[in-house]
Amino acid sequence: MSNPSVIIFGATGSIGSIAARVANEQGAKVFLALRDVNKPIPGLSPDEERERGFERLQADLTDAESIKAAVVKSGAKRAFIYLMFGVTDGMRPVIEALKSAGIEFVVFLSSSSVTVESTNKGDDLTTVPPSDFIAFSHAQVEINLQNTFGKGGYVAVRPSYFATNTLQWRSMVRTGEVKLVAPNVSFDYIASSDISRVCAGFLVRGPKSPDGSPSPAFVTLCGPQLLSQKDALAAIGKALGKELTLKGVDQEEEGIEVFKANGIPENIARDLVRKLISRSKGNDRLYADDLYAEAVANVEKYGGQPATGFAQWASENKEQFL
């Protein structure tokens, strides 16, 4: 396998930073596209960055010309991108800029909600309803990738519920009392490292699966165990050696305020609360048996390692709650 040149947009994020390191470990020349080129990369010291041949480039996903300039300067043929929330054009200018600058294959960090909304409709992305804000926003980007890069020119990596979402509880964990909307609702809590390995694998291989077959248009990923929010909180408490008090929230407006207090924009908070309350009433399509089993298996299939359990993740990341 030749050593590809890849460009990572969002290299300071929880997924992009790990994907950059893993792609580098697997032999890729990695360019780090940053809005602020002086910002530190999590898990990568300046010495390591220099010794391992990373290069920084200034680029802003809201500025198509800066994207073109960064890609042309890097000479990269593969790119990692993520959704810019708030855009109304499905990131079309970004995608067209990548294409015109010479990118041949894109890895897009999407969402499992797209799978949920389209899986029973022939995977038709145009059927994803605007009422599902998160799914619709990601689906619009996938549609533009499909139209611009075509089959084999991109892969949408669709993780489910990030384990790092529990870091929203951090300030409450510190006080000892945690307010949770619909605490009995379960999630899979997939680790960022598992998502990143899958993304890095596609960046290094390009439009190929590990067995050499063509890469799929999308890959859905889930963590290996479904846990209620209540049980996930207990796992965090155990990792910290701290007793935590749970307060359940079942009213929409109060739930929105809980999310807003933890830095979530109101439109996203409202969408999240409505989904949680709906799922608490039994309207749960997220973890259908066949879909969930395949999504868990995909972590190892495309990332090379079994999915990380939440208890392990909590133990490894307990300092972030302190």
Rank of each mutant, 00 (worst) to 15 (best):
S228W: 10
G304Y: 01
G237L: 03
F202R: 01
S228C: 10
E316S: 13
G263R: 09
I277A: 05
D284A: 11
V219A: 01
P207Q: 07
K301E: 09
K247C: 05
V249H: 03
T220Y: 07
P306N: 04
Q305P: 00
L272G: 04
D231V: 08
D250N: 14
Q305K: 15
A295F: 02
Q305R: 15
L272K: 06
R274I: 04
L272I: 15
I264H: 05
V219L: 05
P306S: 03
D271G: 08
K275V: 06
E253P: 04
S209V: 04
K281P: 00
I277S: 06
L244K: 10
F202N: 01
D211C: 10
G304L: 02
P210W: 09
A311L: 08
D231E: 15
K247Q: 13
E257N: 14
Y292N: 06
L291Y: 10
A288L: 14
N283P: 00
E243A: 13
N267T: 12
R285D: 14
Y302I: 00
G309Y: 14
V299I: 10
Q251M: 06
A297E: 10
D231P: 02
I268L: 15
S209Y: 09
L226A: 12
Q229M: 14
N283F: 08
R279V: 12
A307E: 00
D284F: 04
L226S: 10
D231S: 12
D284H: 07
N298T: 05
E316V: 03
P214V: 06
G223N: 02
D290Y: 07
G241D: 11
D211W: 12
L227E: 10
L227P: 04
N283Q: 14
K238I: 06
L244M: 10
K318R: 15
D289W: 04
E300H: 09
N262R: 14
T245E: 15
P224K: 05
K318S: 11
A235N: 11
Q305H: 14
Y302W: 09
A269E: 00
N262A: 15
C222P: 00
N317P: 06
E243H: 09
A232Y: 01
D284P: 04
E257W: 00
F218I: 00
Q225D: 12
G255A: 05
Q312H: 10
A217T: 08
V204T: 04
P224A: 09
G237W: 02
N317H: 15
S228K: 10
K318C: 05
K281S: 13
D231K: 13
L276N: 03
V258E: 02
S315K: 14
V198G: 09
L233M: 03
K208F: 15
L291A: 14
A311V: 08
A235Q: 13
V273H: 00
F310C: 02
E300V: 03
K301C: 07
